[in-house]
Structures are given as structure tokens and as C-alpha cells.
């Protein structure tokens, strides 16, 4: 079942800045329930503008966004309700932390949804369990945490609203390898616990290949490609033309002139083992 549908979405910034016009042009795609969708595109290709339409932060200049077959702008006064159904984690979400304690900060979202006392506390604790925020952190100030931990708390702050669709705008930007792996793990465990649909913007082709069921390629505000990760990454030349690439393992196999091209290291290992086995 389609949970989210974008129909002919166009967004024009009304500002008089010449290079900002038509940030998104006539984009259409459908997201099925439970899918993981990756969005890739060079800087300024309209990815961030596109995802801000999914929870109604931006209103389409033309076109519609449908959540469970209903136009989210049907009743503009109710637009705030969509934000708890479609969560959006911005780039560097740790910059939105503001409360005195970690626990209070994570409960900001659910409290805005109207949850109170015990229900609120249970929800926050449940989410902390899923994303791995330890109870001893609850009463700490979010500003005393390390960079990676701050991001974990900030992501938990959005997840605490239990959105059915959760969108991440470059969730691993600026983190060390351990931090990146942690964020990916948080996303996986949230999905496992809630069966949520996940949309991720990323510049890491490796993460996309490992995680995404389908990949959307944006170029200059338009939808350039939309298909399964394997389909999209089989067009390596086109991707390179618009400033993107395929995962490094794929590049290696391509450079070696092999025709069975893997997307992830695990796949590559399988293929190589087979070859070695055949030769031995």
C-alpha cells in the first residue's frame, strides 16, 4: 500500500535571489509502506527542499503530497498533525537541542502531540530503549554529551513522536566511522521496532547500496532516476555525469572489467569467494 505519494510537485522560491528559483520541478514518486528509500543528488539538487514537503514544512507551489491517499494540505489548519506522522530529522539535528535535560528534550515532540504524564514517560523510555539512550543520561544536560551522543538524542527526539514515515537529511554528516555506524544502527532498530517507512538523503553511495530498497536520483531539481538500488547503480556513467558515483566496491569491479558487479562489500566477498573456490 502506498503510504506516501508525491504528485507533480514543483516548488518555486518566491525570493528574488536568481539561483534559487524552481528548487523542485515536477517530481512524482510513490513510497510503499515499510520501504527504505534513498535520495541522492549533488549539492543543491533540491533534495532538502523536496523532503521538507513531505511533512508540510513547505507547501508545494504546484502538485500534491498524499499521505495514506489523503492530500496533506486538504485542511491547512491541520497541517501540524502530519508532522507526527511523517518525522523529519534535519541535517545536524543536534543544533536543535534546547532543554535542560536529555529526557525533557526527547519528550518535546510527544508533548507537542498532547501526550502527558505517564503516557509521555513511557513513550520516551521506550524510544530511549530502541535508540540506545541509557537511563543514566536522562538527567544530564544534552550540551554535556559528545557529538555522537547528541545526535543520538536529537534523533530520538523525532522518533519519540512515533512517526510512521521518518525522513533523514544526511543523518551521518560530520560523524566519525563509529558514529556513522551507530546512526545506521539506530535507524535499523527503529524500523525493526515500528515497521516504519524510512527515507534517507545521503552522499554515501555505500550506505545507500547497503540500506535502500529504492533510490531516487535528483538532478537540478528534477527526478533523474527512480528504481531499485541495483537498477540505479547499474547506470554508473549517467550517475557520474551528474556528479555522483556508484559504491567503491562497484567501481573496483567495474575497473577490473568484471560483469558481475556487486553493490556492497558483503556481496563482493561472496563473488570473490566463489571465484577463488572455482579456481582452487
Amino acid at each position: 500500500m502506498a503510504i506516501l505519494e508525491v504528485r507533480n510537485l514543483t516548488h518555486t522560491y518566491s525570493g528574488n535571489s536568481p539561483f534559487m528559483n524552481d528548487a523542485v520541478k515536477d517530481v512524482s514518486f510513490t513510497v510503499e509502506k515499510g520501504e527504505i528509500i534513498g535520495i541522492i543528488g549533488h549539492t543543491g539538487s533540491g533534495k532538502s527542499t523536496l523532503v521538507q514537503h513531505l511533512n508540510g514544512l513547505l507547501k508545494p507551489t504546484e502538485g500534491n503530497v498524499l499521505f495514506e491517499n489523503e492530500d496533506i494540505w486538504e485542511n491547512p489548519k491541520e497541517i501540524r498533525k502530519i508532522r507526527s506522522k511523517v518525522g523529519l530529522v534535519f541535517q545536524y539535528p543536534e543544533y536543535q537541542l534546547f532543554e535542560e535535560t536529555v529526557f525533557k528534550d526527547i519528550s518535546f515532540g510527544p508533548r507537542n502531540m498532547g501526550l502527558e504524564s505517564e503516557a509521555l514517560e513511557n513513550t520516551v523510555k521506550e524510544i530511549c530503549g530502541i535508540v540506545g539512550v541509557k537511563p543514566e543520561f536522562f538527567e544530564k544536560s544534552p550540551f554535556d554529551l559528545s557529538g555522537g551522543e547528541k545526535r543520538r538524542v536529537a534523533i530520538a527526539g523525532v522518533m519519540a513522536m512515533k512517526p510512521q514515515v521518518i525522513v533523514f537529511d544526511e543523518p551521518t554528516a560530520g560523524l566519525d566511522p563509529k558514529g556513522r555506524e551507530d546512526v545506521m544502527e539506530i535507524i535499523r532498530s527503529y524500523r525493526k521496532a515500528t515497521n516504519a517507512t524510512v527515507i534517507i538523503i545521503s552522499h554515501s553511495m555505500e550506505d545507500m547500496a547497503a540500506l535502500a530498497d529504492k533510490v531516487i536520483v535528483m538532478n537540478k531539481g528534477s527526478l533523474y532516476m527512480f528504481g531499485t538500488a541495483r537498477e540505479v547503480f547499474s547506470h554508473s556513467d549517467e550517475l557520474r555525469k551528474i556528479g555522483l558515483n556508484v559504491p567503491i566496491v562497484s567501481q573496483v569491479f567495474e575497473a577490473l572489467g568484471l560483469n558481475n558487479i556487486p553493490l556492497t562489500v558483503d556481496e563482493a566477498v561472496e563473488i570473490l569467494k566463489k571465484r577463488v573456490g572455482d579456481n582452487a
Binding site: 521538507q52 508532522r83 507526527s84 523529519l88 536543535q96 515532540g109 502531540m113
Partner: peptide, 13 residues
Amino acid sequence: EKIMNAQKARGAD
């Protein structure tokens, strides 16, 4: 504006 959007995404009114 960025922070406002981030808090709005967390349901801030």
C-alpha cells in the same frame, strides 16, 4: 529559520 523548521518538525506550534 533552520531551527524553527527543526522544531516545527517536532510539532512545535
